Amino acid sequence: MNKRVFNPPAVAGGKWPVLTHVGRVSGATYRTPLDAHPVDGGYLFVLVYGSRSDWVQNILAADSARLRVDGREVELATPRLVGKDEAFQALPDEIARPPRLLRITEFLRMDLVAG
């Protein structure tokens, strides 16, 4: 439902950060609107649907992605899954943590590519 109903307007609207990645099987280019939290040297993504989500598996397989955020595009590399403790330590204090009710234990961290 997200892919067909909610994502297209979010991608087109330009208000949400959008992660561009390549399908590991199809080779198609995908654009996924996400919460992208800047952390030291990169970005952190909350895995609301877990690390088995297609977009996460695509990025892990490709080892890179592009992020459109605040009207600019940045290159990201070295994706890795991190646990809640590491993620919460990396996030600035003013960023709200996901509610415990969601039971999110995995996050994706990526590094900015120097350019």
Rank of each mutant, 00 (worst) to 15 (best):
N2Y: 13
F6H: 11
F6Q: 13
P9A: 04
P9Q: 07
V11R: 05
W16T: 14
W16I: 10
L19H: 00
R24S: 04
V25I: 13
G27S: 09
A28I: 05
R31G: 08
R31M: 15
T32C: 09
D35L: 12
H37W: 14
H37S: 14
G41H: 15
G42Y: 00
L44R: 01
L44S: 03
V46S: 00
L47E: 00
G50F: 06
R52C: 08
V56W: 01
V56I: 13
L60C: 04
A62G: 08
S64A: 15
S64Q: 13
A65E: 03
A65P: 00
L67T: 02
D70M: 15
D70K: 14
E73C: 14
V74S: 10
V74L: 14
E75T: 14
E75I: 10
A77S: 14
T78K: 11
T78D: 12
R80P: 12
L81D: 05
V82R: 02
G83V: 07
K84E: 04
E86Y: 02
L91C: 04
P92W: 07
D93P: 04
D93Y: 00
A96D: 11
A96E: 11
P98D: 00
L101F: 10
L102Q: 02
R103T: 08
I104V: 05
T105C: 03
T105V: 08
F107D: 01
M110C: 09
M110F: 10
M110N: 06
A114H: 13
G115T: 08
G115C: 12
